[in-house]
């Protein structure tokens, strides 16, 4: 019986290339999306827009602006795309009504906001039909393994193996501005295991957990608002 040795010249290609490929196949992401609809929705893409905002009231974390931007990008591209107002542009234009301390937490607060002429006029200028609140975080867990790298006069290299799990949990709550009510919510839970084998050079096999959560949530959100 032939033994598979790591640095055996005849089996090295197997360990160096085939093994990472097999791990690549393993480093998949599982994404689960749940939708809860309270009312019917539709949007006139000619003159109506939406804005996607990150919740930043939590003490331990805040919804990353990059994730909000990613979801906005997915919603504003492809079939049935929706015009999305840039988050920072909206926050600056509506300042100080959507800051972490002052942002409406419930649809009831929208009534107070809309009662202020300056705020209502500015929202009207943007053509905002729906406000989408994104809340969530990507957490890393189950980190294990180690990689050591050395460098010397003759060259250098790394050896070892590292692995970790990423878990993305995000929820989007959709508010209809005219009726000042919540029309539904979409939640996404994506997780995946990433691997980093290092045989001379580290080969990152990253599970695209947050990217998958973003694509899943963005596409579902687009369908939800279009009412399809």
């Amino acid at each position: 019986m032939r033994q598979l040795t790591l640095f055996n010249p005849s089996t090295f290609p197997v360990t160096a290339f085939v093994l990472p490929f097999l791990l690549f196949l393993c480093s998949c992401t599982t994404t689960e999306i749940d939708e809860f609809r309270q009312s019917s929705t539709s949007i006139n893409n000619a003159d109506e827009t939406i804005v996607i905002l990150g919740r930043r009231q939590n003490n331990n974390y805040e919804t990353e602006q990059s994730f909000v931007g990613c979801v906005a990008d997915v919603v504003s591209r492809g079939d049935n795309s929706i015009t999305v107002v840039d988050e920072q542009e909206f926050l600056d234009a509506m300042f100080p009504f959507f800051e972490p301390r002052t942002a409406p937490m419930r649809t009831g607060h929208l009534e107070q906001l809309m009662s202020m002429d300056v705020a209502a006029e500015r929202l009207d200028e943007f053509g905002i039909e729906y406000i989408v609140w994104l809340d969530g975080i990507t957490e890393r867990s189950e980190q294990s393994g180690s990689i050591s790298c050395t460098i010397g006069p003759g060259g250098g290299g790394c050896f070892g193996f590292g692995t970790w799990q990423d878990d993305s949990n995000f929820e989007a709550e959709i508010w209809h501005l005219d009726s000042q009510s919540s029309v539904g919510s979409i939640s996404t839970d994506a997780n995946g295991q990433s691997y980093m084998p290092a045989v001379v050079i580290p080969i990152p096999l990253i599970a695209r957990v947050e990217a998958n959560a973003c694509n899943g949530l963005g596409n579902q959100l687009k369908q939800f608002i279009n009412g399809t």
Partner: peptide, 13 residues
């Protein structure tokens, strides 16, 4: 910058 915006928000409102 977030803190300064926070001050401006609570001051104005």
């Amino acid at each position: 910058n977030v803190a300064l915006r926070d001050l401006a928000a609570s001051f104005t409102l």
